[in-house]
Amino acid sequence: MQQIKIAIFGRVFNSSVMPYVDQILNFLFKKNIAIVVHQEFYDFLNQSGSCHPAITTFSSYADLPKDISFMLSLGGDGTMLAAVSLIRDSGIPIAGINFGRLGFLANISKRDIEEALNKILNKEYQLQKRTLLSVCSDQKELFDGENFALNDITVFRFDSSSMITVDAYINNELLNSYWADGLIIATPTGSTAYSLSCGGPIIMPGSGNFVITPISPHNLNVRPLVVSDEIKLHVKIESRTEKYILSCDSKSETLSTTVNLQIAKAPFTINLIRLPNEEYFSTLREKLLWGIDVRNY
Results as ranks from 00 to 15, higher is better:
residue 157 R to P: 04
residue 170 I to R: 15
residue 170 I to N: 01
residue 151 N to S: 11
residue 171 N to Y: 14
residue 152 D to E: 15
residue 149 A to Y: 05
residue 155 V to A: 04
residue 172 N to C: 12
residue 142 L to F: 00
residue 149 A to W: 12
residue 138 D to L: 05
residue 163 M to K: 04
residue 130 R to G: 02
residue 178 Y to H: 04
residue 164 I to A: 03
residue 154 T to W: 08
residue 177 S to P: 12
residue 157 R to C: 00
residue 140 K to E: 15
residue 137 S to H: 05
residue 174 L to E: 11
residue 161 S to R: 06
residue 158 F to K: 03
residue 173 E to R: 08
residue 177 S to N: 10
residue 150 L to N: 05
residue 178 Y to C: 06
residue 141 E to R: 07
residue 156 F to G: 00
residue 142 L to A: 01
residue 174 L to H: 13
residue 164 I to F: 11
residue 152 D to V: 03
residue 177 S to A: 15
residue 140 K to F: 06
residue 163 M to P: 03
residue 160 S to R: 05
residue 147 N to P: 08
residue 174 L to C: 08
residue 144 D to I: 01
residue 136 C to G: 08
residue 152 D to T: 04
residue 134 S to K: 11
residue 180 A to G: 06
residue 179 W to E: 10
residue 182 G to A: 02
residue 131 T to S: 13
residue 131 T to E: 15
residue 158 F to N: 07
residue 140 K to G: 06
residue 173 E to D: 14
residue 180 A to H: 02
residue 141 E to H: 07
residue 162 S to T: 08
residue 179 W to I: 02
residue 140 K to A: 06
residue 181 D to I: 00
residue 134 S to T: 11
residue 182 G to F: 06
residue 165 T to H: 02
residue 164 I to H: 07
residue 164 I to S: 01
residue 145 G to E: 11
residue 160 S to G: 07
residue 170 I to W: 14
residue 156 F to L: 03
residue 166 V to R: 01
residue 130 R to A: 02
residue 140 K to V: 14
residue 146 E to R: 00
residue 175 L to N: 09
residue 173 E to I: 09
residue 181 D to V: 03
residue 157 R to Q: 01
residue 182 G to M: 04
residue 130 R to F: 10
residue 150 L to Y: 13
residue 151 N to E: 12
residue 148 F to H: 12
residue 131 T to H: 13
residue 167 D to A: 07
residue 154 T to V: 15
residue 150 L to H: 03
residue 134 S to E: 14
residue 165 T to L: 09
residue 166 V to L: 02
residue 164 I to D: 01
residue 169 Y to P: 10
residue 148 F to Q: 12
residue 178 Y to L: 09
residue 148 F to W: 10
residue 171 N to G: 00
residue 170 I to Q: 13
residue 140 K to Q: 15
residue 149 A to H: 05
residue 148 F to K: 01
residue 153 I to S: 13
residue 137 S to E: 14
residue 156 F to R: 09
residue 163 M to A: 05
residue 139 Q to M: 11
residue 175 L to R: 03
residue 151 N to I: 01
residue 150 L to A: 04
residue 147 N to D: 15
residue 169 Y to L: 06
residue 150 L to G: 02
residue 176 N to S: 13
residue 152 D to Y: 10
residue 144 D to K: 02
residue 172 N to W: 14
residue 165 T to R: 04
residue 175 L to Y: 04
residue 156 F to P: 07
residue 175 L to D: 11
residue 139 Q to F: 09
